[in-house]
Computed example of a mutant assay.
Amino acid sequence: MTADIEIVQLNDPRLQHLIEAGYVVVGESWGARLRLSEPPHRAVLTAAVVAATDQGFLIKELDDSWAPQVTALEAVNHADYPYTPATAVPQRDESEVLELWRSGYRLFGAIDAGQLVAVTVISLTTARAETEFTSVHPSYRRRGLAVAVKAASITALADDGVRIFGTGGAQVNAGSIRMNEHLGYAIEERWLSLAMPK
């Protein structure tokens, strides 16, 4: 992988010039938005959380006492994040995880018998709330936990008056795209990462 990476939107006129100059695509990513109505329709969000609680999971906002478990969960999952230059997820130690709370991020988790098995992290900008990352322990995947914790985060920020939410990821992560579309997100941006071959 070369350090000379250009990240451009699919409709950017520079794209054709870069390809003509010899750049090749090394990654594809996307950005999506959820725009809630006023008042928000919550049926899909509520159903996602209920589907998880009906399985016995506790879905709740996490305080910073959960930092060790968030750190451990991210360590287990780090290699599973699909990589593109535009969507790289850093490997965080516990002090960096604690910094998420100090920086005003909000974390929501799924808990099974006291063990954190899924987490999502959301931040608030002036324009919207943005999901930073969502992950589920390998043993608990395909049980609706990613959608449940994300739905819980959206509901909490909607209660605070937020109406626009953003998220994104690697194009190869079809499961993430389906999960976000289920919650009402629509892909509005597609990005290509390009590099000059060595």
Score class of each variant (00 low, 15 high):
15 L>C: 13
171 Q>V: 12
190 R>W: 11
29 S>H: 01
1 M>C: 09
185 Y>W: 05
35 R>N: 15
147 V>P: 14
141 R>K: 02
51 A>R: 15
159 D>I: 08
47 A>I: 00
156 A>G: 00
40 P>K: 03
46 T>D: 12
157 L>N: 02
35 R>E: 14
19 I>A: 01
145 L>M: 04
78 H>R: 04
176 S>V: 06
78 H>E: 09
185 Y>A: 04
4 D>F: 11
61 E>Q: 05
18 L>H: 03
32 A>T: 11
2 T>W: 00
28 E>I: 13
149 V>F: 00
72 A>K: 00
75 A>I: 08
42 R>M: 09
96 E>D: 15
117 V>Q: 01
57 F>D: 07
85 P>H: 02
117 V>M: 04
9 Q>E: 15
154 I>Y: 06
26 V>M: 02
173 N>H: 10
93 D>N: 11
133 F>W: 03
58 L>E: 14
138 P>W: 01
63 D>T: 13
147 V>E: 10
157 L>V: 02
161 G>T: 10
35 R>I: 15
120 T>M: 02
183 L>M: 04
154 I>D: 08
131 T>H: 12
104 G>L: 00
128 R>M: 10
136 V>I: 08
118 A>H: 10
112 D>L: 10
153 S>H: 04
40 P>Q: 04
89 V>Y: 09
42 R>H: 10
109 G>P: 09
5 I>M: 01
163 R>V: 09
48 A>N: 13
167 T>A: 11
91 Q>Y: 13
83 Y>C: 11
60 K>P: 15
104 G>C: 02
146 A>W: 06
76 V>K: 05
60 K>N: 15
180 N>Y: 06
82 P>H: 02
22 G>Y: 08
145 L>V: 04
60 K>F: 12
37 S>A: 15
104 G>R: 06
160 D>L: 14
131 T>R: 05
145 L>I: 02
126 T>V: 05
175 G>R: 04
145 L>F: 07
16 Q>N: 13
124 L>W: 11
110 A>V: 03
121 V>W: 09
103 S>N: 04
79 A>I: 10
49 V>I: 13
167 T>N: 04
59 I>E: 11
99 E>N: 11
198 K>Y: 08
170 A>T: 06
76 V>S: 08
47 A>R: 05
122 I>Q: 06
19 I>D: 07
38 E>Y: 13
40 P>L: 00
106 R>D: 02
22 G>R: 01
6 E>M: 06
58 L>I: 12
24 V>M: 00
138 P>C: 00
14 R>P: 10
